[in-house]
Amino acid sequence: MIEISHVNKWYSPTFQVLTDCTTSVTKGEVVVVCGPSGSGKSTLIKCVNALEPFQSGEITVDGTKVHDPKTNLPKLRSRVGMVFQHFELFPHLKIIDNLCLAQEKVLGRQHDKAQTKGMQLLERVGLKEQAQKFPAQLSGGQQQRVAIARALAMDPIVMLFDEPTSALDPEMVSEVLDVMVDLAREGMTMMVVTHEMGFARKVANRVIFMDRGEIVEDAPKDDFFGKPRSDRAQKFLSKILSH
């Protein structure tokens, strides 16, 4: 589904953020990307739908080359759902309109069909009653669930999550993770940047550990948690699992 091969990215000639990153996500797989902050994991996931450019290497999504200037990026992106750390709901639109906008403008769906789809998804994330409210009237956890529903409304073939719970108050983390766990169990292909190791343990197939722009470890979940091969990954795990 997603093929990332030898991706390099520099912010300036002297500052390299991604170094020779190679990995893949196959259909139905849930891959968790973790690592210390500044390790390039968010940058890597944003390269997958070309929100961030990269200078060398290649990324293909469902056979389409992301880096190719001939690629119709809006079309490709409409098939790749993305959930952001800071939700990024459109504050001037009602919740239901947040879900309908891209359905109508990008996929060309009729308004009432988009509404029906939107309401179904809101019901699925448990927020049907909030449809007529504005994003600012919802809690962080609710906003993030709306953001997930908004991405799902496009019927994506893969979902990208960029630290979906990092900006949330602790008591709201689980309501978002529950939605994500359900999604994973239904067979959605997911690439998730997160520090939630509980989530990784529960549903991940593979865990990628990044440090200083490199993919240090790329292993099946049980191997990763059982006995990480690299010192850096061991150190990282012992730090975040010790509490």
Binding site: P74, M82, F84, H86, L101
Partner: peptide
Amino acid sequence: ISRGQPAAANALGLTYAQTMRYVVLPQ
């Protein structure tokens, strides 16, 4: 407008013009 807004619009598949018209300029 924070950079995340156009990024979110782009991620949904909206073109540059649509992003401006429906997300950035109204705000």
